[in-house]
Design a protein around this nucleic acid. Structure first.
Length: 767
DNA sequence: GCACCGAACTTTTTT
DNA sequence: AGTTCGGTGC
């Protein structure tokens, strides 16, 4: 135990050893949050305050859950496999598999990822002849998820106009359809579990009594339903129930757009009467100038819980700021600086290039490619999202649950086997008529359509029979082969990668089987007899037998079902391919939780960062500021910031002002690399472009713009101006000439204005 | 059933 | 600008 608590600072120690009461830990960036969380669990177990089975630890990502488990096994001499450490969705899946009957789900229910969900909705809209102009599938999906994330079923949603009523109706139809097909979407996993436990008192009390300690990571990212879920699990407001230990950072809340509610932190503090609020403000990551920048920036936000990071490391280097004339030049600068870092011996993987939006990566990638510097971009398609892999998964899904219409439709004619749209239409008609799945409707089809569809069903049945006693990896191999997928891609010109991805699925299955504790030889299809083996059967007061979801998943679901869940819930690694000697390119969002010695924050321009769409939502700019805070606090030693006067976006050149965030950083922590222009500067020079530091090919572009733009009016596109009413802006376009000249000016958050230059009073501004 | 062309989109993303 | 999606035409 000495070892466990060794090296903790006073605040960390206090948090780890808190009495078994509700607690809120405000953990700043780089303050050892994960360490506190895992040490808390280890300490509770080691001091005998709780058994491993009495702990529930919830995270948002699989990565975080895995890391927590890894650290726990390093700290404790116990097998962590059976412990309840996982994502909200993973834990709900486990509960629903165990209590599938009570939750009114088929044992082999399948999980829709976002892609699948969208295609279910598209199908629904088509089947109901809904005008998809008026009700785009994406909107409906957003509507449904949004409501589920708040714990609202269709019947609970208040509709105020005809459009909303229609949406509610479609929401209801959607749920019915999912139920018919035996599929659940991500939000449904949570909502279904929530409803199950709300409704079923013995079950609820069982888990409430069981989990003495519930610990939540990244609490600021919880949505309303997750908060309700935690309330329920922790038995809030009832006699039973354990202590909720929430760790989070309100300043790093950057997921409001997907339903996260920072307000949950203060709500928790209030509703759970939190007496133990501990702030972890000692930062172990960044040098002083970097922290000063972060602290001052975030102090511009209101409604904070309040926190200031400090470090024992020295000031370190100032933040280097660079103004480029174009996005190309910005990229060029990043490359020059990276090169010199690399020459100093910096590992390429310790250089991160962050941007607000994915579109920005292209220019940077291009420049890196030309310069021959290896790089890695995060955020592409993940393994289980690739089309060929999804096809294979669909075949596997059909073998486990043939009534999954999405899976059926996805592969019924892939590879092509002569089943066309006409046939499918007929089949859908029959299925609707009898209220059954497409698969079940096949026998009702006659003629040629019946034959081809029958052939498909026979193939699926054949594979199912053939693989009955097989272990999962073998089963996967048979399906890849028997479905004709492998052959299909082998015969394709560009199919080599896809074949490789398919082959990889066999090893993914092998790895899954060994990691999840399924005996290598265990048949992939495991019947309900597994149910009987489930451990800890308990009997509730009213005599209902409850099987605790305690036993390893292997006893409540077959390897195949488990593998399919895994494929939906864990789309595959996209993060951290450790040891890769390459520059790391990613959005600021995906950088959260990571750290690097050297960080570039790029595209710091009004409209990009903060993003223009953020000014329309209330609290939008504050969220952008938190995003900037996250970006800054990723850096350990060196931080670079840059912005560009011009940028190619959506096919046209845009002229932006530098980000307002620069005005919110401490002057003394910044080092401006581009000459900081004095106010009299513009009086002497006719154009900023003449003297701006330009590199290489960019010179020409900049001059072109400069020439094209002055047009005799004395003003220039790209020039910064000030207007008495609208404030600061940038000239985006000039039209007309002489006394008839008008300028289109981007006034940032005020918006775009067209002003007559003979009338408007404008002042030139130095950049 | 497949290939090609044009239109429409383009903040951030995990499960 | 670049991609992706859906529709049309063969």
């Amino acid at each position: 135990m000495q070892n466990l608590l060794h090296n903790l600072n006073p605040e960390q120690l206090a948090a780890v050893t808190l009495p078994p009461q509700n607690a809120l830990i405000l953990a700043g960036a780089g303050s050892g949050k994960t360490r506190v969380l895992t040490t808390r669990i280890a300490w509770l177990i080691q001091t005998g305050q709780v058994s491993p089975a009495g702990v529930l630890a919830v995270t948002f990502t699989n990565k975080a859950a895995k890391e927590m488990l890894a650290r726990l096994s390093a700290m404790l001499p116990i097998n962590t496999r059976g412990m309840w450490v996982g994502t909200f969705h993973g834990l709900c899946n486990r509960l629903l598999r165990t209590h599938y009957r009570d939750a009114a789900l088929p044992q082999t229910f399948q999980i829709l990822d976002s892609q699948d969900q969208l295609s279910v909705i598209k199908r629904l809209l088509k089947a109901n002849n809904v005008d998809d102009e008026k009700y785009p599938a994406k909107n409906l999906m957003y509507f449904i998820n949004n409501n589920k994330d708040q714990g609202l079923r269709a019947k609970d949603v208040d509709a105020y106009d005809a459009t909303e009523r229609k949406m509610v109706e479609l929401y209801d139809l959607y749920d019915e359809q999912c139920q018919r097909e035996g599929v659940v979407d991500f939000a449904e996993l949570l909502l279904r579990t929530y409803e199950l436990l709300s409704r079923n008192q013995p079950l609820r009390e069982h888990y409430q009594l069981r989990f003495r300690h519930i610990l939540v990571d990244e609490f600021q990212d919880t949505n309303d339903l997750q908060y309700k879920w935690l309330k329920l699990m922790s038995g809030h407001g009832s006699a039973a129930g354990g202590a909720l230990f929430a760790v989070g950072d309100d300043d790093q809340s950057i997921y409001a757009f997907r339903g996260a509610n920072v307000g949950n932190m203060s709500a928790f503090e209030r509703e759970f009467q939190v007496k133990n609020l501990i702030k972890l403000e000692q930062n172990y990551r960044s040098h002083g100038h970097i922290l000063d920048a972060a602290n001052m920036l975030i102090s511009n936000n209101s409604r904070r819980l309040g926190k200031n990071l400090r470090t024992d490391a020295g000031h370190g280097e100032q933040v280097r700021v660079y103004e480029a004339s174009s996005d190309l030049q910005e990229a060029q600068w990043i490359i020059e600086e990276s090169k010199s870092l690399i020459n100093e011996g910096t590992s390429r993987s310790e250089i991160a290039v962050l941007y607000r939006s994915n579109a920005q990566s292209r220019v940077i990638e291009h420049a890196l490619f030309s310069a021959g510097i290896p790089y890695h971009v995060y955020g592409g398609l993940r393994y289980f999202q690739r089309a060929e892999v999804k096809h294979a998964i669909a075949y596997l899904q059909l073998m486990d649950n043939p009534h999954n219409d999405s899976a059926f439709l996805r592969v019924v004619n892939f590879p092509a086997r002569g089943i066309g749209a006409r046939t499918i239409e007929q089949l859908q008609g029959a299925a609707e008529q009898y209220g059954i799945s497409l698969y079940a409707a096949v026998p009702y089809m006659v003629g040629k359509a019946g034959t081809s569809l029958g052939g498909f069903v026979k193939m699926v049945e054949g594979m199912r029979f053939e693989t009955q006693q097989m272990a999962l990896p073998e089963l996967v191999r048979i399906v890849l082969d028997g479905s004709g997928l492998l052959q299909h891609y082998q015969g394709e010109k560009e199919g080599a990668d896809r074949v490789e991805n398919l082959e990889q699925m066999v090893s993914a299955a092998t790895q899954f089987v060994s990691e999840e504790g399924y005996g290598q030889g265990a048949p992939a299809h495991l019947g309900p007899q597994a149910q009987a083996q489930a451990g800890n059967a308990i009997v509730s007061a009213d005599g209902v037998e409850i099987i605790d979801a305690d036993a390893p998943l292997a006893t409540v679901m077959s390897p195949l079902s488990a593998f399919l869940s895994h494929a939906s819930l864990e789309a595959g690694d996209n993060q951290a391919q450790a040891g890769q000697e390459a520059l790391q390119l990613m959005t600021v969002h995906s950088a959260k939780g990571l750290e690097f010695d050297n960080v570039f924050i790029t595209g710091l321009e009004e409209g990009l960062f903060p993003h223009e769409s953020s000014s329309k939502e209330d609290g939008g700019v504050e969220e952008e500021r938190r995003l900037m805070y996250v970006a800054i606090t990723r850096a350990r030693q060196r931080l670079y910031m840059c912005f560009s006067q011009t940028r190619m976006l959506h096919g046209q050149t845009r002229y932006n002002m530098k980000s307002r965030f620069f005005d919110e950083l401490p002057e003394e922590s910044l080092k401006w690399l581009s000459p900081k222009v004095q106010s009299h500067w513009f009086a002497n020079k006719k154009s900023a472009w003449d003297e701006a530091p330009l590199a290489g090919s960019d010179n020409a572009i900049a001059r072109q713009i400069a020439q094209k733009s002055s047009g005799g009016s004395g003003w220039r596109i790209g020039e910064s101006v000030a207007h008495a009413k609208f404030g600061e802006g940038v000239i985006v376009n000039l039209e007309g000439s002489g006394s008839n000249c008008r300028a289109q000016i981007n006034f940032g958050n005020v918006g775009m204005k067209v002003l007559d230059l003979s009338v408007a009073k404008l002042d030139r501004l130095p950049r």
